[in-house]
Design a protein around this nucleic acid. Structure first.
Lengths: 253, 253
DNA sequence: ATTGCTGGACCTGTATACATTCTGCATCCG
DNA sequence: CGGATGCAGAATGTATACAGGTCCAGCAAT
């Protein structure tokens, strides 16, 4: 049954993890109809592992928020209303704000500051090097890294855990909605505003200005709100949003 | 094997749920040494169910934050530093603040307002009826209810989920640290301050004063901080803190 | 045509056997 | 005497068989 080379059997990676990754992929790509029940046996067929790891994967994906437990047993693919997506982003902004405040109030090490500053330098570089055709992939990567560094500076395992959970929703993570801008003439403008906020929050943390650091990160998340709003009105941009198939669209005027 | 009446076999309750409840109880009562590995087979013996439901329970308790995954496999009982406990409370305060702000900004239904007001009336009643010997159990219950109503008023499934997660930590939930005051002469004073905050936040929500509502809930959580501080300095009060056995104490001057 | 019932397929919950990996200890070599 | 090494035991990961429960289709009766 185990055919090496077929789907990257590594022996070090458990079947459970493999099933989890594969299932998440199926859900996010919309190959499982939202709202539909996810049958264990069908997944056994489809993923090529036995029921036990499929079961574990289902439980973990429910924990991630991508699946929903059915009262009578089993799981179904979760759907999200537009409202829920906005709220998820708002929650992320609030928690990142808390992280920034904690970092500012407690103070951070010189090396942390250095790492963050280096990361911002790299982003500046990306934006300066080729303003007409920005390397979005690299921007997204660096942006995610900065946010991770920020969370790290708060030095709070509990907070990191909570944020991990919010970011598990594919459309809520810090970099999820950046690509939506790619078809907009305003992209450079928005990106530079966002990057300015990055600089400002780092400066605030350095000066131990907690309230300011918090406010900036909250506002920073609002950029994602704007991008989402754009994607919802321009339907053709929706395919740039990860997990967009899970979003129950409302009729829009 | 299934002995009805021994541990409430209901047939409608799955073995998994039973195992989860029993295991949580074992962890919270400190019958499993913090930091120690939780052996599946030992739990099978101890709980009287097979490995499968035990496994499920372990995964769910990890999700709750009471257990920690060991990289090489299996789980261990998680320990919390004092810092982590404070942070968990801070996170709760922040999220409850967000809930209050959302409720205020969006406006809430008349029936919600009524329910909340009724709950506060009931708390007032408890405090007035017998000031010398307050029925703490009932206070705790009503307090938890008020916080639940508040979360409900935010009308955000995502936020409710996140708060559920924080409150799963036994010492972080709104009512967890209330009993610590029971041995303090200041109890009545602190309870009335807390209750005043309840009234104020409800009034703020009613008037749609979002920023104020948020600030109040954040400050409200700080009462728990104070109670925790008390318990940590007066070791004899620690046994009033649920899950206190999981808290790694530091030497205090 | 509608409603209630019944049979059966399917699905999940549970238990357990098997395979593989990890761990701890004793022993041996440098 | 310290550290590496190999072995035994145990623990987890995985697969699968079995037992109920749920839900739907089809049929019959009204």
């Amino acid at each position: 049954m185990i055919k090496a080379g077929e789907n990257g059997n590594d022996r070090s990676v458990t079947q459970t993890v493999r099933a989890q990754l594969a299932l998440r992929d199926l859900v996010l790509r919309g190959e499982l109809n939202p709202g539909e029940r996810v049958s264990e046996l069908q997944m056994v067929e489809r993923l090529g592992v036995s029921r036990t790891p499929v079961r574990m994967a289902l439980v973990r994906l429910e924990e991630e928020g991508l699946l929903e437990a059915i009262p009578s047993g089993g799981f179904s693919v979760k759907t999200f209303s537009e409202k829920e997506v906005f709220e998820a982003i708002e929650i992320r902004g609030t928690l990142e704000g808390l992280a920034a405040r904690l970092a500012a109030e407690r103070g951070v090490s010189r090396t942390d500051l250095r790492n963050a500053a280096d990361c911002l330098d790299a982003i500046d570089d990306v934006m300066r090097r080729n303003p007409a055709d920005i390397d979005l992939l690299r921007y997204v990567e660096l942006n995610a890294r900065f946010h991770d560094i920020l969370i790290g500076m708060a030095d709070s395992q509990a907070l990191a855990r909570q944020l991990e959970r919010v970011n598990a929703l594919p459309f809520a993570s810090p970099s999820a909605l950046v690509p939506v801008q790619s078809r907009s003439p305003e992209m450079n403008y928005i990106l530079s505003v966002a990057q300015d906020q990055h600089h400002c929050v780092l400066s605030a943390i350095e000066r131990r200005e907690g309230a300011r650091a918090e406010a900036i990160m909250r506002e920073h998340a609002r950029i994602a709100h704007r991008n989402l709003e754009r994607a919802l009105t321009n339907q053709r941009d929706m395919d740039l949003v990860p997990g967009s198939v899970l979003i129950k669209r409302r009729i829009r005027a």
